[in-house]
Design a protein around this nucleic acid. Sequence first.
DNA 1: TGCACGATGAAC
DNA 2: TTCATCGTGCAC
Length: 186
Amino acid sequence: MANRAALPRSFYARATEDVARDLLGKHLVHVDGDIERRARIVEVEAYVGAHDLAAHSSKGVTPRTAVMYGPPGHAYVYLIYGMHHCMNVVTEPEGNGAAVLLRAAEPVANVEGNTKGPGLLCRALGIDKRLNGRDLLSEDFYLAAPPRDEAFGVVTRPRIGVAYAGEWADAPLRFYIEGNPFVSKK
DNA sequence: TGCACGATGAAC
DNA sequence: TTCATCGTGCAC
């Protein structure tokens, strides 16, 4: 059964930078057991493809990056530093290795604890490796337009924690909602 | 088969 | 500024 609330596949099958900006203000929904957790995305980063040296996909297709190279509208969830999970949404046509990292969100419903950071966001929403590769048009895991749209400004900055990526370290591919208190620190 | 190192967060 | 903690990718 199709999920009418979820953003359509076509939303994800576009230029990663555009998808990243458009994800701001959208709701991330995870039905965690019998609890529907919902948060509003306020900060994201674009990883634009295999040529982006900050992207995991720059290693080529490996068991880990296969999801990034798969069809758009799926979740790429991985463990970082042996203890935190990070969630991305796969973008662009299959084979490009592009995705958007969800860095921070604002609690909307059934979300407790800090959501200001990619690891904290996943913890608060009950997202872990079990959801890696999941279709984001699922009934229990998806992104959706908010009931009411709010106007907001978008700030563009370099990405966090990618100093190793040479030229790509300074690329302005981090986007967040201007003035929003739930944007991660740094 | 071993090893260096992270798209982080919290403590000191 | 340091450290926890382990999967991944690559060197040997």
